[in-house]
């Protein structure tokens, strides 16, 4: 899973969001590293919808235009969790080694 996809799915963890809110939330969660262009977002949303990781949950008309909200599906949530665990395991390779080095000292 690419980092951009990961943060789009992570943005939907706390409930459904529409396109612009996903861009803002993904940026906030990644401390500003992920700045999604609208074109990139909708390519990703199309792929994730086709893959069954997200679905359209609501549609409102705002300023005469349709504004749909997307939510994480069970499959999407599982894929996100699995990837997060992989990242955490990869991070432990470094962080736990650092802890061991500080704890285990020669007598």
């Amino acid at each position: 899973m690419r980092e951009t996809t990961y943060f789009i799915l992570a943005a939907l963890q706390d409930g459904p969001l529409h396109g612009y809110a996903i861009i803002q939330r993904a940026s906030a969660l990644s401390s500003g590293r992920i700045q999604l262009a609208t074109g990139t977002l909708y390519t990703a949303l199309e792929r994730l919808t086709t893959a069954g990781h997200i679905r359209v949950v609501d549609e409102q008309i705002v300023n005469g235009r349709a504004r749909r909200s997307y939510e994480l599906t069970t499959e999407g949530g599982a894929a996100l969790t699995e990837h997060a665990e992989q990242l955490a395991a990869a991070a432990r390779v470094v962080t736990e080694r650092r802890v061991n080095r500080t704890v285990v000292r020669p007598a």
């Binding site: 529409h18 262009a37 609208t38 990139t40």
Partner: peptide
């Protein structure tokens, strides 16, 4: 409609970055 709504919410001005992203998308 929704893509246009999102791009207008994200940008008050016309930017090359958004234009490139839309063309590529």
């Amino acid at each position: 409609d929704e893509i246009l709504d999102t791009v207008l919410q994200s940008n008050a001005r016309f930017t090359a970055r958004e234009a490139f992203g839309l063309i590529v998308g």
